[in-house]
Simulated assay, not measured.
Amino acid sequence: MIPNGIIQGGDPLSTDPAQSARYGTGGMRELRFERNSEQMSRGAVAATLAPGMPDSGGSQFFICIFDQLPLTGQYTVFARVAEGLNVAQKISQVEADNTVPKQRVAMTKVTIRDKPAAGPEPFATETAEELSKYRAVLETSIGNITFQFFPDKAPNHVRNFLRLAQVGFFDGTAFHRVVIGFVIQGGFLPTRSEPLDINQDRYIRKMAPEFNDIQHDKGTVSLAHGDDPASGDTSFFIVLARTPVLDGKYTAFGKVVEGMEVVVASS
């Protein structure tokens, strides 16, 4: 295993701790290489190969914890992690001696299950009136902050935030930017403490702006973006004081209705 890189398993020799010196050599040279266009990105599952031998696959496999794009096309990617990528990351962080874990991490059981049917996209069908009744409570390390939403002004941004919140995207993220008297900003993907699972990853989308007449007063919640107004996705900011320069340049989609003292304390 490589910390936050890959983890490898499936060697039949690993059922016997006495064979630890030979781990990584069993169950090989049984399958021919099957080239495909699947990217060696986060969550990819591929057949392990002996060095310089593309037709040496077998029972062993490895999981990419984070993107390993230079490996694309060199290994047969045959699956992707649908759930539990955070568990795989924790396994990758087990103390190891020259990539061999010092602590035995065993697969106790492998179950084949039917693929779950794709469910409806969250918050896709609710009316603006229905969306306006939702509140989001941000539980932070110094107290709670509650958002109210304005779907009549920015319906797609409200749906986007509610979807990300429901699938747990914001859990474990941090307020990464604080400008006293201006804004605090959070929801930035690189601040997550755990990798995304497949369900979370599919809801990260670039948002076309929905500029509106909501003023950026104290407590207003808006979507952050780069130079391109259509580059925003997950990161949002809370305004700390009336800031007219933001009006019409960022999409305001909510406001703080409880916990503004927590917002101020964060700054």
Rank of each mutant, 00 (worst) to 15 (best):
Q74W: 00
D67G: 01
A88V: 13
G84S: 10
T108D: 14
D55Q: 09
R80M: 11
G58T: 04
L69N: 08
V87E: 07
A47G: 07
G73A: 05
I91E: 05
G84P: 10
D97L: 14
A118Q: 15
R80T: 15
N86R: 12
N86F: 09
D97Y: 12
V105Y: 11
A96I: 02
M107H: 07
A47M: 15
D67C: 01
K115F: 00
A79T: 01
Q89F: 03
M53C: 08
S56D: 06
Q93K: 11
G57D: 05
P101Y: 07
G58F: 03
L71R: 08
V110N: 01
R104P: 07
F61L: 07
E83Y: 09
G57W: 05
P101A: 09
G73Q: 00
T99F: 11
V94M: 06
V77G: 08
R80S: 13
P116N: 07
M107Y: 06
S92H: 05
R113E: 14
R104N: 14
D55H: 14
L69Y: 02
S92I: 05
P54V: 11
N86Q: 13
Q60H: 04
E121C: 08
Q89V: 00
S56P: 05
V105H: 13
M107G: 09
Y75S: 02
R113A: 14
M53E: 15
Q89Y: 07
A96K: 06
D97M: 14
S56N: 04
P51W: 06
G119P: 03
L49M: 02
P116D: 05
F62V: 04
K115E: 03
T111L: 12
F78G: 06
A46G: 10
G84F: 09
P70V: 09
R104W: 10
K115N: 00
C64M: 04
P120T: 02
A47R: 13
A117L: 15
Q103H: 07
V87C: 06
R113F: 00
D114V: 05
Q60G: 03
T48Q: 08
A50E: 14
G58L: 04
T111C: 07
M53Q: 15
P54F: 08
K90G: 04
E95L: 08
P120I: 00
T111R: 10
L71I: 11
V87A: 08
A117M: 15
L85Q: 02
D97P: 06
V81K: 09
T48K: 09
V81Y: 07
Q68E: 08
T111E: 11
G84N: 11
A47D: 03
T76V: 09
L71N: 09
C64I: 03
A82Q: 11
P54K: 13
K90Y: 05
I91K: 01
D114N: 13
A117F: 13
E95K: 14
D114H: 10
M107S: 12
V77S: 05
A106P: 00
F78T: 04
F66D: 11
G84Y: 10
F66C: 03
R113M: 13
Y75E: 00
P70Q: 08
Q68T: 06
G52W: 00
V87F: 11
A106Q: 01
V110W: 01
V94A: 11
K115S: 03
A96S: 14
R104E: 12
A50L: 15
S56Y: 04
K102I: 10
F61Y: 12
T108N: 15
Q74D: 00
L69G: 01
E121D: 12
G119M: 14
G73I: 04
